[in-house]
Amino acid sequence: MLYAILCYNDEAVTTSWTQEEDDAVMAKLQVVHDQLYADKLLGPSIRLMPTTTATTLRKSQDLVLDGPFAETKEQLLGFYIIDVANLEAALQVARDLGKANPGGAYELRPINIYQPGIEIK
């Protein structure tokens, strides 16, 4: 079963981290990532730039708006694609990631269609 783990957190907090704090979180996460690769559970993972860089296209009127689609207290900051047996296993992965990177929430969403597309370097 393919799941997307959508990562939500308060971006005002995460962008306030110093470079050292950010590096420390990424290093802790990398340990979890490496284990997930070894267990053949983790596909692509993506960290998004802050929502200040976002642009939204309202399709019906072709209206281009600055900023993210939804103004929320916590923002979508990235996502993982994982390949697991069931929801319980997906939750376990999310818990492992959460221990390395506390704060905010993960939303687990089963994936309907997955197309890897072109190879991106």
Binding site: A12, V13, S16, W17
Partner: peptide, 15 residues
Amino acid sequence: MSDPAWIDAALTSAR
């Protein structure tokens, strides 16, 4: 979740 570093960051960004 409530570790001191997180609280510190939350207080700073809410200031």
